[in-house]
């Protein structure tokens, strides 16, 4: 019996960890300042992706822990990224059943809203602490992330779409 190529293979936990580590690396890369905040927040993007595809494994707790790491690495106030990431992880999980059935371009729109919400939460936190608005360029990252969503999802699913041999 042939198995459909669309039937996805299970994801190993090591793979999820690896993607998070790569996302952290990209966020910490030394050219971030030169790009003036235009790079999307890849850790947030990965949290949305995995909360969507593996809701039983990646949830609010992981988002919180990754947020804390980002806060320390970025010399922010502790809890800023943690709060924003926990919120978007919850928002993804709350509508996960619907969200997973959308075509890629609609998923990209939802991701855009989620990442904008995460930036807005961080902005509110910083305004409450007493910083000033860093300019509209601050919201450019999520737009680029939304454009990247479809190729990125396809790339990540490639790992799961490898055809399995028919023999049982």
């Amino acid at each position: 019996m042939p198995i459909s190529t669309q039937l996805l293979r299970p994801v190993r936990f090591g793979f999820i960890l690896l993607t998070f580590i790569v996302a952290l690396l990209v966020n910490l890369a030394p050219w971030q300042a030169a790009l003036a905040g235009l790079t999307p927040d890849f850790v947030a993007l990965m949290i949305v992706y995995w909360a969507l595809h593996q809701p039983r494994r990646i949830g609010v707790g992981w988002a919180f822990a990754l947020g804390l790491l980002m806060d320390v690495a970025d010399a922010n106030y502790l809890g800023q990224h943690a709060l924003a990431y926990s919120l978007i992880a919850y928002a993804t999980l709350a509508r996960q059943r619907q969200f997973a059935l959308f075509p890629f371009w609609q998923q990209a729109l939802v991701t855009l809203m989620l990442l904008l919400a995460s930036q807005a939460v961080m902005l509110l936190v910083r305004l409450a602490i007493g910083d000033s608005f860093p300019g509209p360029g601050y919201f450019a990252g999520p737009l680029i992330a939304a454009v990247l969503w479809t190729p990125l999802s396809n790339l990540m699913l490639m790992h799961q779409r490898k055809p399995v041999s028919d023999e049982l």
Binding site: L78, L83, L87
Partner: peptide, 25 residues
């Protein structure tokens, strides 16, 4: 068995975040 609901977790972790933010800033 999935442990506490996502909303419960969100409450716990966002409360934790707020505590961290206030105690840090």
């Amino acid at each position: 068995k999935q442990g506490p609901k996502p909303l419960t977790r969100l409450m716990i972790f966002s409360a934790l975040s707020f505590i961290l933010l206030v105690s840090d800033a």
